[in-house]
């Protein structure tokens, strides 16, 4: 989606090119920055993960063997990846109607909606997360409401549960889903929808046959961002998830900071990174497939 936007912009404003072929030098400063501050540490991480013992005296694949040899570690990895799936699915479910509403609203309503969507991004994630601690607590808003309405007899345990965490993450990551969706949906030609209904399709059929497929690039971009952000959301995972729900980010923190077992921490970081990359690549493939679908 990003690439196609760039193409559109480039083709619309492309003046004659005086120094054709040299534009790439503009990217050099950022490339150098990434090489020094991202690629180098990443390579270091790979090297550290290849030490066989926690004192870092000899090389070997022991850390990886240790990780994959214990079913518990598989469970932590699995539950982290699945947490991302749940959060992404729910964010899409709630975010899509919101983005759609935005495209159907007048300019004033649109400004209001975009403010609502962006506002959370302007507050720190710690503040947003702490609000959820207050909402989900035993004396929190949800429990007080349930008790007052007589829907529950004793306060429910919501804080430090996986469902509470999913709810908090869905809200915290919502802008990452809604913004790409809004971008795609506003670029959708309304004539197509009119054409669809003129040809006899009902609103649902139009949605599933026209709107949804055409918005796939936005969906993929939104899912990608939401997924990557929610599986790695260290702060929200620990503050709302508590001390006994273990996900990969806390696991890495625990091994690095509390136990000083850097090689194992580096190894599980690599495993986590590769797994998330796998999911991201899958989504990307989907995105590419959808592009073919649109241009066809």
């Amino acid at each position: 989606m990003v690439a196609s936007t760039a193409d559109t912009v480039a083709s619309a404003h492309a003046p004659p090119k005086p120094h054709a072929g040299l534009e790439w030098t503009l990217a050099l400063p950022l490339t150098a920055f990434f090489a020094v501050f991202f690629v180098t540490p990443l390579l270091l991480l790979v090297v550290v993960s290849l030490f066989a013992d926690s004192e870092m005296t000899r090389f070997g694949l022991d850390q990886y063997a240790k990780f994959f040899g214990d079913a518990f570690n598989w469970k932590v990895l699995g539950s982290t990846l699945f947490l991302g799936v749940k959060v992404t699915a729910l964010t899409l479910l709630f975010g899509y109607p919101l983005a759609w509403l935005y495209t159907r609203s007048g300019p004033r309503m649109q400004s209001a909606l975009i403010l609502v969507v962006i506002l959370p991004l302007l507050t720190s994630v710690v503040v947003r997360t702490f609000a959820w601690v207050v909402i989900l607590g035993r004396d929190g808003i949800v429990n007080n409401l349930l008790l007052t309405l007589g829907l529950a007899e004793t306060p429910l345990r919501l804080l430090y549960t996986e469902n509470g965490l999913v709810a908090a993450l869905v809200q915290v990551q919502m802008p990452l889903m809604v913004l790409p969706l809004i971008t795609t949906l506003t670029r959708l030609d309304p004539n197509l929808l009119d054409a669809s209904s003129a040809l006899g399709a009902g609103p649902w059929r139009t949605f599933f046959k026209v709107t949804l497929p055409l918005s796939l690039p936005g969906i993929v971009a939104g899912c990608l961002l939401t997924y990557a952000a929610s599986v790695t959301a260290f702060i929200t995972q620990s503050l709302v998830g508590g001390g006994q729900l273990l996900f990969m980010p806390q696991y890495i923190y625990q091994q690095t900071i509390t136990l000083h077992n850097w090689p194992f921490a580096a190894a599980i970081s690599m495993v986590f990174m590769v797994s998330v990359l796998g999911v991201v690549m899958l989504l990307n493939l989907l995105g590419r497939a959808s592009k073919g679908y649109i241009h066809a």
Binding site: V133, G137, R138, D139, G140, S238, L239, G241, G242, G243
Partner: peptide, 14 residues
């Protein structure tokens, strides 16, 4: 997850 969070749980009535 940590002692600081534990102390605030009194405030939340948790």
């Amino acid at each position: 997850p940590n002692p600081g969070a534990l102390a605030t749980l009194f405030q939340q009535g948790q």
